[in-house]
Amino acid sequence: MTVMANAAHKAGRRLLRDFAEVEQLQVSVKGPSDFVSQADMRAEQTLKEELAKARPGYAFLMEESGASGSENWTWRWVVDPLDGTTNFLHGMPHWAISIGLERRLADGTVEVHAGLVYAPAVDEMFWAEKGTGAFMNERRLRVSARREIHEAVFATGIPFAAASAARRNAFSRTLAALMPQVAGIRRFGAASLDLAWVAHGRFDGYWELSIKPWDICAGLILVKEAGGYATDVEQGDPLETGNVVAANPHLHAKLREVAAEGMSRAGA
């Protein structure tokens, strides 16, 4: 965790400088509504250098540069250097660095061993290691205790232009089913922080479809170590399917049921 925290703090300081001068950043478009800036690239390079220096044998899966290192890795960093790029580029302080650490076991299965989500603009660092609990800075985290769905506030991500019609329809059906039942639904634009906030108890749950592993790897272990559930919408692994439902133990089954129904009816 010290290695991860040091790397995140170093990258975070540079991101804060870029955030203060965001109007001067060069920005390119990867796809519809999908941006990458100089800030993303510089942060990713800093994280890769710091993590590789501390753990030279570990492989990488990074948002901008992809996979690197040995294909037969035992340990792998899964990194999003700037989750919430659109927020960042619009001067909104809701963005984060996400670092997950995967371990390949002797039987070939892969587990998330540790995760860190750092929000530099508010200096909140969420972190967890398997079997040791989840924390924000030095505070121990627990998911919310709400049992009734009409009291719940859920987070999600709204599909943008590049999403398939099936995915857009699945989201619309799930949203339509949930809205009359819940206290509120939020879309803040940074999946890693959505999961961290579920672990914190700020959100009671979160769902999203077709999301990348670097967006959720760290957040999944945060939720689990805070006493919540973080699963695929159906029976798979969310890191492979990109479909995730996370919530406290009382509300997870209901949220997962509604999301799965939305996918089924939309043919997603």
Rank of each mutant, 00 (worst) to 15 (best):
A145R: 15
S37A: 08
A196F: 08
R173A: 02
W73F: 14
H94C: 03
V3C: 00
T109S: 13
A152T: 05
G262C: 02
H250Y: 15
Y229L: 15
A163F: 04
K10H: 06
K30L: 15
G227Y: 07
L61A: 14
R202S: 15
A96H: 04
W214Y: 15
R76N: 11
G84N: 06
F126M: 04
A161F: 11
N243Q: 15
V3A: 13
E49L: 01
E257N: 04
E240V: 07
E240P: 05
E138S: 10
I185P: 00
W197Q: 14
L255P: 11
G184N: 00
G242L: 15
G228M: 07
E111Y: 02
I97L: 07
T174G: 02
P93E: 01
R187K: 05
E63D: 05
S98D: 12
R147I: 02
L220A: 08
M41G: 08
V122Y: 02
A106H: 01
G100K: 04
K212Q: 14
A39T: 06
H113F: 11
S192G: 09
D83C: 03
D204I: 03
F19Q: 03
T85N: 13
M92E: 15
V122Q: 15
V258Y: 07
L116S: 12
M125W: 10
L178I: 04
F160M: 12
V182F: 02
A39M: 00
A162S: 15
A183P: 09
R265V: 08
A260K: 04
H252L: 08
A162E: 15
V110N: 07
A67M: 09
A8E: 11
A39H: 00
S192Y: 05
L141M: 12
P249C: 04
A246Y: 10
T132I: 06
V182K: 01
S192D: 05
T174E: 07
R146F: 12
V153A: 06
D18A: 09
F60H: 06
